[in-house]
C-alpha cells in the first residue's frame, strides 16, 4: 500500500525528517507516536501534499506510484485521505456541497459519471445515521461553528463517503472528550477492511485503547527509533518517551 524509503524533509533549511522507513500493507493500522517536535505532523503533511515542505531525499510509493510527485487533490482522488488535527472551517460552502464535489472528483478521476443526486442523498443519509450525526449537519457550512468533537466526526463522515484506501489520521484524539473519542473510534473501526490501511499519528496512547494498531512506531528527532506491536504503546504510556529518545541520542 505505502512504502516510505529513507525520506528526508526540511522546512526551509531545517531538516525535520531524517530518513524515515515505513512499510504499510493493505488492511494494516500503524500508529506513529512520539513527543512534540519529533516530526509526526510533518510526516502526515508531506504524505498528503501540504505546501511549505521540501523533500530533500528518499521516496514514498503509494500503490506503485510516486506519491510525492502528485498534487494534493490527485493523492486524495487516488485514495489518500488526511483527517486533520484541526479541520478547517469553510464558511459559505455547505457540507453536502463539498461531499458532492469531492465524490464526483473521484468518480471523474476513475472515468465514472457523476453520482445520481438521489443515490447520493441516500448514501450520505445512511452514513450520517451510522455516525449518529444530525442530518442538519449536511446543510451547515463545512466545520463552521462545530465543536471539536463535531469537527472530528465530520472528518470521519467524509472518510465514510469517499472510501479512501489509505487514511492518515493526524492527532485525531486532540481536543476530544472521552465520549467523542468513542464515537470517532467506532467510526474508524467500522471502516476497517482488508483493503484499507490507517496511519494514526498520535501523542498519547489513549486513542489506541479504542483503535488497536498492528504496529507502533516511535518517532524522535526525525527518525523512527523503535517499532513494535500494540504493547509498545502501553510501555510508552508507562515510561514516557525519554527512554527511547535516550537510546538513540
Amino acid at each position: 500500500m505505502l512504502s516510505i524509503k529513507n525520506l528526508h524533509v526540511s522546512i526551509g533549511d531545517k531538516p525535520i525528517l531524517k530518513g524515515i522507513n515505513l512499510e504499510i500493507k493493505p488492511g494494516e493500522i500503524h500508529a506513529i507516536m512520539g513527543p512534540n517536535g519529533s516530526g509526526k505532523s510533518t510526516l502526515s503533511h508531506v504524505l498528503s501534499g501540504k505546501g511549505g515542505y521540501t523533500v530533500t531525499g528518499g521516496s514514498a510509493t503509494y500503490q506503485g506510484k510516486d506519491l510525492l510527485e502528485m498534487a494534493p487533490e490527485i493523492r486524495a482522488r487516488e485514495g489518500v485521505f488526511l483527517a486533520f488535527q484541526y479541520p478547517v472551517e469553510i464558511p459559505g460552502v455547505s457540507n453536502i456541497y463539498l461531499l458532492k464535489a469531492a465524490l464526483n472528483s473521484i468518480r471523474k478521476h476513475n472515468g465514472q459519471s457523476e453520482v445520481d443526486a438521489m443515490d447520493f442523498l441516500t448514501l450520505v443519509k445512511e452514513k450520517v445515521r451510522l455516525l449518529e450525526m444530525d442530518e442538519k449537519f449536511l446543510y451547515r457550512a463545512v466545520n463552521e461553528g462545530f465543536s471539536g468533537g463535531e469537527k472530528k466526526r465530520n472528518e470521519i463522515l467524509q472518510m465514510a463517503i469517499l472510501e479512501p484506501k489509505l487514511c492518515i489520521m493526524d492527532e485525531t484524539d486532540s481536543g476530544l472528550d472521552i465520549d467523542a473519542l468513542k464515537i470517532v473510534s467506532e467510526g474508524v473501526n467500522s471502516l476497517r477492511s482488508p483493503e484499507r490501511s490507517f496511519v494514526m499519528v498520535t501523542h498519547y496512547q489513549r486513542l489506541l485503547d479504542y483503535i488497536k494498531p498492528d504496529k507502533v512506531h516511535v518517532l524522535a528527532h526525525g527518525q523512527i527509533v523503535k517499532s513494535g506491536g500494540a504493547d509498545l504503546a502501553l510501555e510508552l504510556e508507562e515510561k514516557g518517551y525519554g527512554w527511547v529518545e535516550e537510546a538513540v541520542a
Binding site: 487533490e73 488526511l82 486533520f84 478547517v88 460552502v93 464535489a101
Partner: peptide, 21 residues
C-alpha cells in the same frame, strides 16, 4: 489545502472559496 485534500483542484478551490465569500 483543506479543499485540495478533499479532491478539489486548486483553481476550483479558489473559485469555490471566492464564491462562498
Amino acid at each position: 489545502f483543506y479543499l485540495q485534500s478533499r479532491c478539489v483542484d486548486e483553481e476550483t478551490a479558489r473559485n469555490m472559496l471566492t464564491f462562498a465569500f
